[in-house]
Computed example of a mutant assay.
Amino acid sequence: PNRTSLPELLIDGPYGSPAEDHRKYDVLLLVGLGIGATPFISILRDLLNNIIKQHEQAEGLSGSCSNSNVSSDHSFTCLNSEHGNRTPKNQRRTLNTKNAYFYWVTREQGSFDWFREIMNEIADSDIKGVIEMHNYLTSVYDEGDARSTLLTMIQTLNHAKNGVDIFSGTKLRTHFGRPKWKKVLSKIGTKHKSERIGVFYCGGPSLGKELSTLCHEFNQTGCSRFEFHKEHF
């Protein structure tokens, strides 16, 4: 008997995480909802390690150049600024990223415990302000709302006195409500004109659609280039 022909099956993939492309951008906007912040913590660690490495190399290079007994070859490497490059090739930065903006939006206050250590480490080590972090707690009324005024006062006083946020337990102050995304992208685009900005999002589809639309709108009217990447948890 004739066998029934089977349908043709095509397989395409596998694909890596969209966040793997973060190294090629001048500026990063990282947006995580709840547990969706997880893939971006790895990026922040990568950036932080690069910041620490550059700082250590700069200190080592400065010490070597100030040593009167250095060899002539080493002195030439340190002092030659013909091309504005004072760093040996093997010590040049491996990332294109100059600035990163991290927005973490969560409903549960306890979620901040997950990444408290890395956030405090960034606050202590990022002297030049390469990484800008923003925590948002959506279970509290928006900032400016009369119903959250008392909480804001207590938060402000405690942070001023102890340097710790009462909601996240970190040195980073927590915002209430949700970010105004159009204002966020506008601010970043204005600050980084004519640069490629990688927008990486991990969370539900609703906000992903909003961010994608905003990126398209700003690309039509501004001189910065927003490139949107998403993944869903």
Score class of each variant (00 low, 15 high):
residue 1 P to F: 15
residue 1 P to S: 15
residue 4 T to L: 12
residue 7 P to Y: 03
residue 7 P to G: 04
residue 7 P to N: 04
residue 8 E to D: 12
residue 8 E to P: 14
residue 9 L to Y: 09
residue 17 S to Q: 13
residue 21 D to R: 15
residue 23 R to W: 14
residue 31 V to P: 05
residue 31 V to K: 02
residue 34 G to E: 05
residue 36 G to T: 03
residue 40 F to A: 06
residue 41 I to R: 03
residue 42 S to P: 15
residue 45 R to Y: 15
residue 46 D to G: 09
residue 46 D to E: 09
residue 48 L to D: 04
residue 56 E to A: 10
residue 57 Q to Y: 13
residue 59 E to D: 14
residue 59 E to H: 12
residue 63 G to S: 07
residue 64 S to Y: 13
residue 65 C to K: 10
residue 67 N to H: 03
residue 70 V to C: 12
residue 71 S to Y: 06
residue 71 S to W: 06
residue 74 H to C: 10
residue 75 S to L: 04
residue 76 F to L: 07
residue 76 F to W: 06
residue 76 F to E: 09
residue 77 T to Y: 10
residue 82 E to K: 00
residue 83 H to W: 05
residue 84 G to L: 02
residue 85 N to R: 09
residue 85 N to T: 07
residue 90 N to A: 14
residue 90 N to F: 13
residue 92 R to N: 03
residue 94 T to N: 10
residue 100 A to S: 04
residue 100 A to C: 08
residue 106 T to N: 02
residue 109 Q to W: 00
residue 109 Q to V: 05
residue 114 W to K: 04
residue 116 R to K: 08
residue 117 E to W: 05
residue 122 I to L: 04
residue 126 D to P: 00
residue 129 G to I: 00
residue 130 V to T: 08
residue 131 I to P: 11
residue 138 T to G: 02
residue 140 V to S: 06
residue 143 E to G: 08
residue 143 E to V: 05
residue 144 G to Y: 02
residue 144 G to W: 01
residue 147 R to K: 12
residue 153 M to D: 15
residue 155 Q to C: 10
residue 155 Q to N: 07
residue 156 T to A: 11
residue 157 L to T: 12
residue 157 L to K: 12
residue 158 N to M: 14
residue 158 N to F: 14
residue 162 N to S: 15
residue 163 G to C: 10
residue 174 T to L: 04
residue 174 T to F: 01
residue 175 H to E: 03
residue 179 P to E: 08
residue 179 P to H: 05
residue 180 K to Q: 10
residue 180 K to V: 10
residue 181 W to V: 05
residue 183 K to G: 08
residue 187 K to S: 10
residue 188 I to M: 05
residue 190 T to P: 09
residue 191 K to I: 08
residue 195 E to S: 13
residue 198 G to C: 15
residue 204 G to E: 11
residue 205 P to W: 00
residue 208 G to S: 01
residue 209 K to F: 04
residue 212 S to T: 11
residue 217 E to P: 09
residue 222 G to K: 14
residue 225 R to A: 15
residue 228 F to W: 11
residue 229 H to T: 12
residue 229 H to K: 14
residue 230 K to Q: 09
residue 231 E to P: 01
residue 231 E to N: 01
residue 232 H to Y: 02
